[in-house]
Amino acid sequence: MAHGSGGKATQTLIEAVFLDAFRNPALEPLEDSAVVEVGTERLALTTDSYVVSPIFFPGGDIGDLAVNGTVNDLSVSGARPLYLSAGFVLEEGFPVADLRRVTASMARAAATAGVGVVTGDTKVVQRGKADGCYVTTAGVGLLDRPARLGVAHARPGDTVIVSGPIGEHGVTIMLARGELDIEADLISDTAPLNGLVATLLDACPGGVRCMRDATRGGVATILNEIARASGVAVVVDEDAVPVRPAVRGACELLGIDPLYVACEGRMVVVVDGPSAGAALDALRGHPLGGEAEIVGRVRDDPPGLVLLRTTFGGTRIVDMLVGDPLPRIC
């Protein structure tokens, strides 16, 4: 199962199987969205499947997660999300009332994001062949801005910003499974980022190098992708990373590092040095970016690595995980 945890094993799987089978110029950058040209327009295209358990959790459900996730993948590629499709795989016996709840929240999320769910599909499989309800969304967006964004675009001197406190979605889900005797005042951070992205791109035209929504594998995995693709070092200041006390407490209890925990409404932004102030102000001026923080800088050395400056001034390596985190201490 290590192949699904969003770390290096997932990466290897993608490269070994999918890239190999489908190799083409639009796929090759392995960004969250592909860029294709149709007539004179540049479009961004993306798809994602959602298999979250439980289906309903504090702050959201699989429905708004599926809409927001695809909206966000389009948004961080610099596109204006327009239309979504939705596919459902339902386990026989999945309550219709639950399905109504899911579709209603999808509709609400789509309305909030200003996108239309314009086509769909449903399949029912035998009991036991699926876990309640799976949702797949695909989305198309219009790339109508001149911004050239990509994980390979980070340069030494750039500034790294996260748009808000991290790890809330992942921790909420873990606690919502109900196996743990932990109570925390937490809700998922799931939210559509297109408005926040538009605000940012308007505020510093040409200053943004890349944006990624920090989903599976968390902020740490995104930063590693940026460091590797750009051939730079990303140095993060541990004390500057925004983490809510409830998340920190739960992570400490669970023995996990918030940097690796998934978010569904936070993004990592790399901007050039001179744009840092304007970018931060713009993000903070938006309701979804009020707690944005500058968390680090891009350096030339050591290329490909993410380093964490700890409270005592040490530099810990924040590596891409190969699989599920296992203690390394002997």
């Binding site: 873990m174 196996e179 743990l180 005797d181 209890l253 669970l254 023995g255 996990i256 203690p327």
Partner: peptide, 23 residues
């Protein structure tokens, strides 16, 4: 304050890798 939560972690096997460690 954290005892029940930690016992729950262990029982559920969540974030709790199994070990035969003497240490």
């Amino acid at each position: 304050d954290r005892w029940p939560a930690v016992v729950a972690l262990a029982r559920a096997g969540v974030g709790s890798p199994r070990t035969s460690s003497m240490g």
